[in-house]
Amino acid sequence: MSENIIAFILGIVEGLTEFLPISSTGHLILVGNLLGFEGEKANTFEVIIQLGSMLAILVLYWKRYLSLLNFSTIGKPEKKLDAIHIILGVLPAALVGLLLHNFIKNQLFSPNVVVVSLIAGAILMIFAEKKHGKFVSSTVDELSYKQALTIGLFQCLAVIPGFSRAGSTISGGLLAGANHKTAAEFSFLVALPIMVGATGLDLIKSLHFLHTSDIPMFAIGFVTAFVVAMCVAIVFIKVLAKIGLTVFAYYRIALAALFIIFVIL
């Protein structure tokens, strides 16, 4: 199979899974293993296509990000999402990621950790669906600073490969009193800064693996991930309230079983 076809397949996988609560890392490892595309080049490629997914969120929410630059609304009594919400949603995971970056990359990126994380994340999502109380925030503009911080603390779980950033933040949002749509939208909004930091650090460390001959392959993966991620984000917001997290939790358990069969055994 040519590298360009592999790039297209993995771009689809990244776009489909990055913003769904099913672990993009787990899927990329599994599919990469099945395609025989592994090693340092594959790791660098994953960083590049994640940038494509991030660009999709920036395009979808650029007006919202621009509004965060209006600092005059901070601390005002009228409810409105501001930069402090984003900082509270990002800072805990950013600190954990920076402090434990080398440990995570060297010790936690293993099939066994991914399997455990897939199952643990599934349990969290089922728990969040069953235990969330009355929704007190029906839009992101109604989120309190306390809710934003709660979601940010749950996002710390996402530093563990296979746990899923979307799964942990949306679960945290439900348990904090946000409805499904609000939890998903805030999850998207805090994804960009945390992913820019994480992938930026990885990209700097991977630059020496990039060669001009790889540009077509990387470009195909980047563009594919961008287009697919944008479509998935739009549809996911619309259907999440109807289907909930439980169906994704069961999917994660099935994925963990596939991981055991094809990667570990």
Rank of each mutant, 00 (worst) to 15 (best):
K105R: 09
F226G: 13
F186T: 11
N70C: 03
F8E: 04
A198H: 06
V228P: 05
K131L: 04
A249C: 09
I253Q: 04
T150R: 10
S67A: 11
A219G: 08
S168E: 08
F103C: 08
I57T: 10
G172V: 03
I253M: 15
W62L: 13
V136Y: 01
E129R: 09
F218K: 03
V31N: 00
F262L: 00
A158G: 05
N33K: 03
G97K: 05
M125I: 08
A229G: 13
H27A: 01
K130S: 15
N102Q: 15
G152H: 09
M230Q: 13
K242I: 01
I123V: 15
G221D: 15
F71L: 15
M217S: 10
V223T: 10
I234S: 14
F127A: 14
S168Y: 07
S213M: 05
G52I: 04
L66A: 15
P111W: 01
V59E: 11
L91S: 14
G244D: 08
I126F: 11
F248R: 03
G11F: 09
S213A: 14
G11R: 04
M125F: 04
G162S: 03
E18Y: 02
V136D: 12
T246I: 08
S138H: 13
L124V: 04
L66D: 08
V47N: 11
N106T: 07
A257D: 11
A93D: 06
F209I: 04
P111S: 02
S206A: 15
I123D: 10
F188C: 10
Y251H: 03
N102M: 06
L210N: 12
V140S: 04
L28P: 01
T199G: 15
V227K: 13
A93K: 07
E18D: 05
K63Y: 00
L108W: 02
I29C: 00
F248V: 02
V116H: 07
A256P: 00
A120S: 10
E185F: 06
M195T: 13
V239I: 14
L16C: 00
L245T: 04
G15Q: 09
A256W: 00
T224K: 09
L192V: 13
F154D: 12
L88I: 03
L58I: 09
I87G: 14
L28C: 00
G244H: 08
Y65M: 06
S137P: 07
A178M: 12
T139M: 08
I261Y: 02
L153N: 09
P216Q: 06
L88S: 10
S138W: 07
Q50K: 11
L108F: 06
M230C: 11
S72Q: 12
G75C: 07
F71T: 09
Y65Q: 07
I194E: 02
L210M: 14
L258N: 10
G36A: 01
L143S: 08
I160Q: 04
L192G: 11
A83Q: 08
W62S: 12
L30A: 04
L118M: 10
S53E: 12
E142F: 05
E185N: 12
Q155F: 05
I264N: 09
L91Q: 07
G11I: 04
I48K: 12
V90Y: 13
N70G: 06
F135N: 13
I9C: 05
P161L: 03
F109Y: 11
V13E: 01
L124C: 13
L207Q: 11
A183H: 05
K80M: 10
I5K: 03
T199H: 15
K238C: 12
L203S: 09
T139H: 07
K63L: 02
L207G: 12
K79H: 09
A166G: 12
P216R: 01
